[in-house]
């Protein structure tokens, strides 16, 4: 979980990990394999899934077609994976033949996450999935994301709502002005008086 104030470089860090921005120093590894030289597309093939913050669905295509496009790289049968996504997000099964652009904000985010899951990634990266959705929908999205994590997929996520995010995080990174200020378990960060005072409003 990456949290931090506005302009701290959360999304930038995410883009750097995914290869959309060049690294000045350091390496990116995935499951022990050095992927620093790979393009974003190649990283998807290597097992990374990425959900951008905006423009993360194909609006004029149906929900099911969105999922199919998520699995475009795969040559094997993607039907079982589509079924798994529908089990994770039951609402998408009901709306499978509807254009994704016609869905509500929370449902669109579910389509976006579902699309990224279609490559069966080891690591799923979410850039502020709850941006612009209502608090109730946000709670539901968090629940779904926890469920995704339970299926064995690691999740790296940028989140504005620091308190809620840290509550569910195994590891939290608090970025300030482009640098990693605190790293600890979510619970420890929540208990840390410095973090509380500076970023969580006491």
């Amino acid at each position: 979980m990456i949290v931090g104030p506005n302009g701290a470089g959360k999304s930038t860090a995410m883009k750097a990990v995914f290869g959309m921005l060049p690294l000045r120093e350091g390496r990116v590894t995935l499951g022990g394999r050095d992927i620093t030289a790979l393009t974003p597309q190649a990283r998807v093939a290597a097992g990374m899934g990425f959900v951008p913050q905006t423009h993360n669905i194909f609006p004029s295509m149906t929900v099911e077609e969105n999922l199919e496009m998520g699995g475009f790289l795969r040559r094997d049968d993607i039907r079982p994976t589509i079924e798994q996504v529908y089990e994770l997000f039951p609402i998408l099964r009901d709306k499978r033949h509807q254009a994704a652009g016609e869905l509500s904000g929370g449902q669109r985010q579910q389509v976006a996450v579902g699309r990224a899951l279609m490559t069966k990634p080891q690591l799923l990266m979410l850039d502020e999935p709850t941006a612009g959705v209502s608090p109730i929908v946000m709670d539901e999205l968090f629940d779904r994301i926890i469920e995704v994590a339970r299926t064995g997929i690691s999740i790296l996520m940028v989140e504005q709502n620091a308190r809620q995010a840290l509550e569910i995080a195994d590891t939290g990174f608090v970025l300030v002005q482009g640098a990693n200020r605190f790293t600890d378990t979510g619970a420890a960060l929540l208990a840390d008086p410095h973090v509380r005072q500076s970023f969580l409003g006491g």
């Binding site: 951008p52 194909f58 295509m61």
Partner: peptide
């Protein structure tokens, strides 16, 4: 068809199509 759908995806959202490996 898969190819036809990938064309529509590309028209819809070019960056996401690239991310999907199209």
């Amino acid at each position: 068809t898969r190819t036809g759908k990938s064309m529509r995806a590309f028209a819809d959202n070019r960056d996401l199509a690239l991310l999907s490996g199209i």
